[in-house]
Structures are given as structure tokens and as C-alpha cells.
Simulated scan of single mutants.
Amino acid sequence: MFRNYRYELRELAKTLKISNSNPRNAGRKAQLTPDQTVEVLELHRKGIGNTEIAKQFGVSRQTIYKYIYNAEHFSANPDFTMRMNFMNGQQLCTVIDIDFKHEVVRMKNYIDRIPLRAFGVVENPSWADFEEFLKERCLSASRAGLKAFSERWMFLSMIRC
């Protein structure tokens, strides 16, 4: 369900472009394609400096900062500290934003086929729905420690704040 890091970054770049739909194609054009955005994020993750990345892509340092910032701050609400992409093979089905502090889940479906959606017909999932989703679709029933797993996520999300 969840692909490697490079694929998730590519899907994030596509998602960012989808969320800024512009039917008239007005305004300033993007300086980097979604694939280039994925490359920028990978280089940044490897520790390559923003100046070097900017030279490689022929854009300003400020542009690189902007793309990295937008990828890391996917939500205007700072309490949403984690994003999950629910996939069916290579296809993005649902994007799930998680607020561990207040136990709130927000999601957006990118597919019409209900069985492939993370929460099926549920449009506004509760925290209990999210925990059930983790248990049923992400962690096998034979795996013990769902509570420990969610507590670890809570700990990791607190570190990010």
C-alpha cells in the first residue's frame, strides 16, 4: 500500500499540484515540474545545500526554499503533523492528514471506486475510524501491538512539533 520514499514524494508533488487547481491557467507558471520537485526533495534529504540544488535546476535559492517549505508544511494547521498516502499499486486513492494531539483525521479521496478508498463511504472519519483503518488495512491482524505502534506515532509527532 505504501511505496518507497521516492514514489511517495512524487505523489506528494502531484497532490500539491492537484490541490491548486487553476482552470484558467492564470498566474505565474511553476518553475519546477512535479518530477523535478521530487528530485529537489531527495537532494535536500541527502544533505546537498540549497545553493547547489538551485544551480543544478537553474532557479534561485528562494525557489528551492519555497518548494521544500511547501512539501514539509502541507497543512496550514500546525497540529496536523503527519500525512499518509493510501495507494492501490501506483494509483493514489486517499490522502490522510493526521493530528495526533487532538486525535483528528482529515482526508481527501482521489478515486471514485469506494472499495479502494481508505475509509470507504465515510467522508469525515473519526479517530476510531482511523484506528480501525490502521488495524484492518495497514497492520495485519497477526501483528501485535497496535496500541504501542500508535503510541510510537504519537511520540514521533510530538518530536516534530
Rank of each mutant, 00 (worst) to 15 (best):
N22M: 04
A141E: 11
D99L: 07
M82S: 15
S150M: 15
S140E: 10
Y69S: 01
L116F: 03
I48C: 00
N22T: 07
T63G: 02
H73M: 02
M84H: 14
A54C: 06
R117P: 11
Y5Q: 10
T33E: 14
L12C: 08
F80Q: 05
S75G: 01
E123P: 03
K55W: 06
Q90V: 10
H44I: 07
F149M: 06
P23A: 14
W153D: 11
P125M: 01
A76K: 12
V105H: 00
I53S: 05
R10C: 06
Y69F: 02
G89V: 00
N70M: 12
W153Q: 14
I114L: 03
V59R: 10
M82Y: 15
K101L: 09
T37P: 13
T63E: 05
M158P: 09
F2L: 13
C161W: 15
C161H: 15
K66Y: 08
M87V: 02
S140H: 12
N20R: 12
R113Q: 13
T15L: 10
L116V: 03
W127M: 04
R61S: 06
D97K: 06
V38W: 05
N85K: 04
G47Q: 01
Q62H: 03
I114N: 00
A118Q: 03
V105G: 02
D112F: 07
N70K: 10
I98C: 10
E72D: 10
M82K: 12
K101R: 11
T94W: 07
N4T: 11
Y5R: 09
F2N: 09
G120W: 00
I159C: 14
C138L: 13
A26C: 08
V40W: 06
E136G: 05
T81F: 14
F149C: 10
F133T: 00
K55M: 10
E103C: 12
M1R: 09
T51A: 13
T51V: 12
A26D: 09
G89A: 02
M84T: 13
E42V: 08
I96F: 03
S140L: 10
D129L: 01
E8I: 07
A71G: 04
L139S: 07
G120H: 00
A144M: 13
K147D: 12
G49Y: 00
Y5L: 09
D99F: 01
K14A: 15
G49T: 10
R3S: 13
G47N: 01
S157F: 12
K46V: 02
R117Q: 05
R106Q: 05
N77Y: 07
T94D: 05
K55L: 09
T81A: 13
S126R: 00
G58W: 14
E42W: 01
S126K: 00
F86N: 00
Q36G: 13
D129F: 07
R61G: 07
A76L: 11
R160K: 14
W153S: 13
C138R: 08
D35L: 15
I98A: 11
I64E: 08
F86R: 01
